[in-house]
Design a protein around this nucleic acid. Structure first.
Lengths: 202, 202, 202, 202
DNA sequence: TATGAATGAGCCTTCATTCAT
DNA sequence: AATGAATGAAGGCTCATTCAT
């Protein structure tokens, strides 16, 4: 028995909580709901996580990890930076707009973090990691192609992420307004406008 | 002028609720908190708003109105469209990033709307109005200047709004990362990339 | 203006309360309901009746009066006591079983009176009056016809009233079980069994 | 024998509720009262019964059961039907007139059932069972004695029950008016009047 | 006379948490 | 490692009552 039963159960609870949270949102989710979804008793949940807040933090950590991993997978290694960038943006959008449980949880807890000091650092870290991720992938590609962004490499990823997240929120509020192809096309256009070919060094 | 007091009280409650909601968020705000902030009894709040949901809806309506008005005021009439656009974007950002109570409430309830069917239509309408607003202001200016956006005029405002909102969420989560001037500069650059000067006819 | 407006309004409130009480029962009726039914404000109700209990008492007084009057009208003056008795019993049953608002209110408040010391005396008086009423009508008729009841004239009316009321409750609980004609026939049979022709004197 | 405690607690709550309901009546009884009487917290009551209505239904079921059992025990097996009938009627009356908690609860909830659709079926069933019970006991006895009721065997028990219940309500409203011996005597007389000896065959 | 406004106590219910088993 | 039982603090809401107008 490589994994202790305890760890398995704890993981089950986190997954169940993710599902319930994605379905009902933080404000409407009780520990009972989570316990029921996990097929356990309320007491069991408290055995693994001393308090609701502790559980929620774990859930957020898990959800951000999942989203991050999916995002990472999106950074296609492509021939040309332009094609690669475009495909990456598409995938980034899909990861968020697909309403996966984890993406929903991140969006919901992001809002909670405005008022919950315990959540905020985690989300700040999530953003920071995402930005780093993006920069680390973009920077070498761009340099290799002699392309120079018009805005600082520190800020650029933040902008892209912000754009994506903001559009996601709109899409959640009114799913019929934003057509996926429109969004991707627009983001692409935007992105292209951000770069200029650097003058070759003499 | 009989019983004008009622309207005043109702308005006071909405304002108090806005303050409390901005401070604590929907999930942590009780009617008691609101009543206390308004200097009234819980009963009085229920006298003016039959249910918590009804009150929240009113608060959302009020908050979106305020944000909308401020946004409207941001559309400066300027000499050249470029300068005007830039100044408008700046103000748009400020309206949102200033963490005014109303902006916070809109952001919070936006998240709630994911799980609250009663809230969603209002927020969808809010986005729709904002998009219209922006288009109505931009379209004539751009045409007059012979400028043509690279993405359809239907989609453009949604993109801009999404970008702003997404950045706001990031800024809320970690206020120290995004410097206002960076953001505005980036948005401006982005915006400029969206347009091209149309070839002169004839 | 013969009647003061106040009296008219008070009467309207009592009537409205009777309707609402008959519809919803004491436990589920609020002053608001009554005020709405009377087309007045809650304040107006309190202007006429200082407390809810005072109003309810008035309503009970009114309802018992109405039932009593209808009952009184039921004591037909008929040729023979037997026919008269029979017709009277029929009407008594109808008065109660017809689910008139007043009959319902009496039944409902009768139950309340078990726990409400203020109501009990009124209902005791109601029963006493009803018993007297019946006795006063029956006694001369029976004597004239040389008929003698097998149970004391003091108890007889109580028995008859009890029988009727008990059957009414059953009919309320399950309207389909007791057919009116069965009930009347049974009551009649019962009633006849209560009397015997007295041996003629001399 | 794990967690038998739960059943015990649930039963305690039902009993406590019966006591409180008998003392204060439905309209004046809160869950707090019941919890206090049961020596538990409000939360514990809700743990065992999800809603007040569910608890009340259980209480009613329990109370009708108790009354029924006592009634059943009343059907004495006696030498002659007449003596048996008389003794049975006496006990029936005592069961109801003794103001036992259960009898009071049944009477109170009977009134509630006029306006509570959830209660009505239970009380209808209670009446139906009581009627059946009585018929099953009476029918063979009467037949054996060659006695034939003047009113149909379907209706007879309803009449007797109605009579008893109606008298009980009167006795509750004014305990001093109806002397037990008078009531029993009257009922007996009534009952005797309901039968006639069947003409011997052949 | 009558109204709208406001109060405050109380009600049913939910829920995170604790604990014995 | 997990469960069922129980607690107690809120939470949203109802309602009789009071009061200025």
């Amino acid at each position: 028995m490589r994994y202790k039963k305890s760890e398995i159960s704890a993981a089950q609870i986190v997954q169940a909580a993710t599902r319930v949270l994605a379905r009902q949102g933080y404000a409407r989710t009780s520990l009972m709901d989570i316990a029921k979804e996990a097929g356990m008793s309320k007491g069991a949940v408290h055995y693994h996580f001393p308090t609701k807040e502790a559980l929620i933090q774990e859930v957020l950590a898990h959800a951000t990890n999942v989203v991050q991993e999916r995002t990472l997978a999106a950074w296609a290694e492509d021939a040309t930076p332009f094609v690669g960038l475009r495909r990456s943006l598409e995938t980034l959008w899909e990861v968020r707009a697909s309403r996966s449980d984890e993406a929903l949880v991140v969006a919901d807890l992001l809002a909670q973090s405005l008022y919950d000091d315990a959540l905020r650092p985690q989300l700040a870290a999530f953003y920071a990691t995402a930005a780093h991720q993006m920069r680390d992938h973009l920077a070498p590609q761009l340099e290799a192609a002699g392309i120079q962004p018009k805005i600082p490499m520190e800020v650029l990823p933040r902008i892209v992420i912000g754009l994506l997240d903001g559009l996601v929120m709109q899409a959640f509020a009114d799913p019929d307004v934003l057509e996926p192809e429109d969004v991707v096309a627009a983001i692409e256009t935007l992105a292209l406008g951000l770069f200029e070919v650097a003058p070759k060094k003499g």
